[in-house]
Simulated assay, not measured.
Amino acid sequence: MISKLQLRKEIKNSKRQFTSQQLRELSFAVITRLLTHPRVKSAKTIMLYHSLPDEVDTHTIVDSLLMSGKTILLPRVTGEGTMELHRYNGPKDMQVGAYGIMEPTGELYTDYANIDLAVVPGVAFDHDGNRMGRGKGYYDRFLPLIPSTYKIGVCFPFQMITSIPAEEHDIRMDEIITSQ
């Protein structure tokens, strides 16, 4: 089986074959599917992420879901491998945080049992719901705190692979949404 390090390298090389415009177009298809998903429509509180340039672009969806009356939570890095959730109140509520990622400055959110849905990024996913992140373990440490929350991984089609080396402690996604 291929190592996680090799998989990350292969996915990174695949991303380089697309222009930023092509990635935006692929993102649009993923976000459109996500917005029409019954779990998104029924959720009151949604954990999302503020995307990096090489991830499915979530910048517009956070605002549209907020405008529709949903409580939006975004992660904020608090230390090596640790993050916490903060309420997102709008674009003015963001500041540059760890790794150059925009992070929310809204109030800390700790009522994890009331998170209806988590939309999770990843470097790669497989059809069994296994997820491989960037290797720092932020989501690996956080996801066990929300065991009953429905988890949707979002990715580009080339990020769906046959099999990811999963370990016992890895948290599987309930569903993966891609542009196809």
Rank of each mutant, 00 (worst) to 15 (best):
M102Q: 13
Y109W: 12
G153S: 03
V62S: 00
K41S: 07
Y88W: 00
Y112P: 09
H169E: 04
I72K: 10
I31Q: 02
I164P: 00
T45R: 13
M173P: 02
V56Q: 04
F156S: 05
R172I: 01
S51M: 10
E80L: 13
E25Y: 08
I152R: 06
H169Q: 08
G81V: 09
D93W: 00
T82W: 08
M102E: 11
K4F: 09
I115E: 05
H127N: 15
S179I: 01
Q95D: 09
I11N: 04
M1D: 10
S179D: 14
S27N: 06
S68I: 10
H50A: 09
P157D: 15
V56R: 03
P38G: 03
P144Q: 07
A118W: 02
E25T: 12
V56Y: 01
D57S: 12
H37M: 10
T58Y: 10
S179M: 04
L52R: 14
V62A: 01
T110I: 10
I101Q: 02
L145V: 03
E25W: 04
E25P: 00
Y138M: 06
L52T: 13
A118Y: 05
P121C: 11
L5T: 14
G153I: 03
R16A: 14
I161F: 03
M173N: 01
S148R: 12
R131M: 09
V62T: 12
L74I: 00
G129L: 05
C155S: 13
V123C: 15
I161L: 07
T36F: 11
Y88L: 04
E10L: 13
I61F: 08
K44E: 15
K70L: 06
M1I: 09
L26A: 10
M1Y: 09
V119L: 13
T105G: 02
T178Q: 03
S20L: 12
T149E: 05
G137H: 11
D174T: 04
R33N: 15
Y138T: 03
R76N: 05
P91H: 08
S51N: 13
S51V: 06
I176A: 01
D126A: 09
P38T: 09
S14Q: 15
S27P: 09
E107Y: 01
R8V: 01
T105D: 00
K4I: 04
S27I: 12
H169T: 02
N89A: 05
D54E: 15
K4M: 08
K44F: 10
P53K: 08
K15C: 11
A98W: 05
K15A: 12
V77P: 08
N130S: 13
G153F: 00
S64Q: 15
I2L: 13
M1A: 13
A166W: 00
L66Y: 11
K92V: 03
L74A: 04
D174E: 05
Y139R: 07
T78K: 14
H86V: 02
D128A: 15
T32W: 08
R24C: 09
E175P: 01
V154F: 02
N13K: 14
